[in-house]
Design a protein around this nucleic acid. Structure first.
Lengths: 125, 125
DNA sequence: CGAGAGTAACTACACTTGTAGTCGGTAGTC
DNA sequence: GACTACCGACTACAAGTGTAGTTACTCTCG
């Protein structure tokens, strides 16, 4: 499995677009991010380049443009980020973090039901 | 309420010691961190200084040494970090994050019970 | 009193991150 | 064939981070 690189905040926004679409060219990514993140095209290209250099993203040439595609799964990266977050903020303990998040509020009844089911599923294995 | 500064990884380790003890001098912090983070004393002082500059920590002079004390609560900082983590990794959605964390595993039976109770408590208010 | 140990202040320096600008090439258009 | 628009490559640059070194001062011990 590829070693997971450290992905920065701005880079996350970029790679999210790739995860959503499967693959995309630089221009497409720039347009997808136009709302909210108002980046110049060069900025997006720099970020794509850094992601390539980090090994998080691959590309194929398509004529004179590049098509980028994620090389690492969102789930794997989320897991790594979660672990680093947990160890920094909660000393690695999952349960206090869960309690903290639950108290962050805004859980609907449906959410709560789903979470309980997930807990049940976690009980046996 | 004081604006919450952005606290870096290394700074977290330092301010955690202050949260644990209430207050401490630079040397004490260095010793507390000697296991795991093997930092030179100057490194710890630099980090304390940065925390002071950021407004996360205050100090009083005690003779020719400084006694440092947190100015922001761990809970408030954890909340801010959680929010930023959530929005980066899970687009701000709490429930998927909770599910993800639960699957990170290692929940004991007792943990699961506690979490269910917490969910129940979240149900009414 | 003189030497050593410990203190905070100031300085250092490479790496990452956010946010681009510029350059040289090519594809497509008149 | 000349011009324009777009592409990737390379360069830039300030702020934040990790990790200290150096300096100037002072308290304490012999």
């Amino acid at each position: 499995m590829p070693k997971l690189p450290q992905i920065s905040d701005a880079e996350w926004d970029v790679i999210k677009v790739l995860w959503d679409r499967g693959e995309a060219g630089a221009q497409e990514v720039t347009e997808a991010l136009a709302v909210g993140r108002n980046w110049r095209p060069q900025t997006v290209k720099t970020l794509l380049n850094r992601l390539v250099k980090k090994g998080a993203v691959a590309y194929v040439e398509d004529g004179r443009r590049f098509i980028y595609r994620p090389k690492v799964s969102r789930d794997a990266v989320a897991r790594a980020e979660s672990r680093s977050f947990l160890s920094r903020v909660f000393d690695g303990a999952v349960t206090p973090a869960l309690v903290h998040f639950m108290k962050l509020g805004n859980l609907s009844k449906a959410d709560i039901e789903e979470l309980k089911r997930t807990l049940d599923r976690e009980t046996k294995p």
